[in-house]
């Protein structure tokens, strides 16, 4: 197979159209995008775990993960409105344009984890950066062992990609455990923090890779639980978030110790995270 030249839009944004907008959860929307330039529309390739820098014209630029699978999926981003630029994005309608640079970053391991069990542990919007890898792994179901998703959110309304999850559950042997923090009427799923799901799912630790993503408290609880069960620090993988201005290793805002999250990361093993030389 001929290797395709990889396209990276480094410093001059390319314009995309917003084809469709879906409400995902309160303050969270998914934007489906397509490049105006047909060459990019056909040739823009990503790896799971990479991100782009997205320009909201008139407001500015922000870093955002790429939830689509690298194979057979629509280009989209899922964004929570938290500040100036992300709120401006939420005010846009289909047909509006955005700027895109990237894709940047290393991405999640895929070939390296073939043959293993894969556990995804997500808290809240931590599911956004994991979505790509989940779908990619499910698209190659036969190459992996157990595939388990442990997902928690504050309330049932905060759960993302609910349709997707129902779709994924059709894949044989895909195990899902979803919990919300407190009981709600009409909720018949799990209740409690995500780390409690680890026991419920009776997750394997041998020959297993765990991808963990969520707010710091959840992250720490989950890591502690996985380590307690005997998982190796090299098999726990996460993606880090930092203030970023360029995405290609020059503005230095995302430096943690000796690493730059934009070019060396955003995906790190827990062992790497521990030795970055600075707190996360």
């Amino acid at each position: 197979m001929k290797a395709e030249a990889k396209i990276t839009i480094v410093d001059f944004p390319e314009v995309v159209n917003i084809d469709e907008i879906r409400d995902e959860a309160p303050e969270v929307k998914t934007f489906y995008l397509s490049f105006l330039d047909p060459r990019l529309e056909a040739g823009f390739r990503i790896r799971s775990g990479q991100f782009i820098m997205c320009t909201v014209f008139g407001a500015g630029e922000f870093a955002v993960s790429l939830p689509p699978s690298p194979e057979r999926d629509r280009l989209h981003i899922t964004v929570r409105a938290v500040g100036k630029v992300t709120h401006a994005l939420h005010r846009l309608r289909p047909g509006d344009k955005l700027g895109v640079r990237g894709p940047f970053g290393n991405g999640f391991p895929f070939e390296e984890i073939k043959g293993k069990n894969v556990i995804y542990v997500a808290g809240g919007i931590g599911l956004i950066p994991l979505r790509s890898s989940i779908i990619h792994v499910l698209q190659h179901r036969e190459a992996f062992g157990r595939i388990i998703l442990l997902y928690g959110a504050r309330t049932s309304r905060d759960l993302l990609y609910r349709e997707d999850i129902r779709e994924w559950q059709k894949t044989p042997g895909f195990e899902t455990f979803v919990a919300i923090d407190r009981a709600e009427s009409g909720w018949d799923g799990e209740v409690g923090y995500v780390n409690t799901l680890i026991g419920k799912a009776n997750v394997p630790v041998e020959n297993t890779a765990a991808f963990v993503c969520g707010p710091p408290v959840m992250f720490n609880g989950v890591i502690a639980e996985l380590l307690k069960r005997g998982m190796s620090e090299d098999d726990i993988v996460s993606t880090l978030e930092r203030n970023m201005k360029c995405g290609y290793g020059k503005c230095q805002h995302c430096a943690i110790g000796r690493t730059l999250v934009c070019t060396d990361g955003p995906v790190y093993t827990y062992r790497q995270i521990k030795t970055l030389g600075e707190g996360i």
Binding site: G58, A59, G60, K245, C246, K250, C251, Q252, H253
Partner: peptide, 22 residues
């Protein structure tokens, strides 16, 4: 050589992307 990047926009909607020392 650390820098910040921001989009500065005028009243007429014309914007410039600025790279400034940080």
């Amino acid at each position: 050589s650390c820098f910040n990047v921001e989009d500065a926009c005028g009243a007429e909607g014309e914007c410039e992307r600025l790279r400034t020392w940080d």
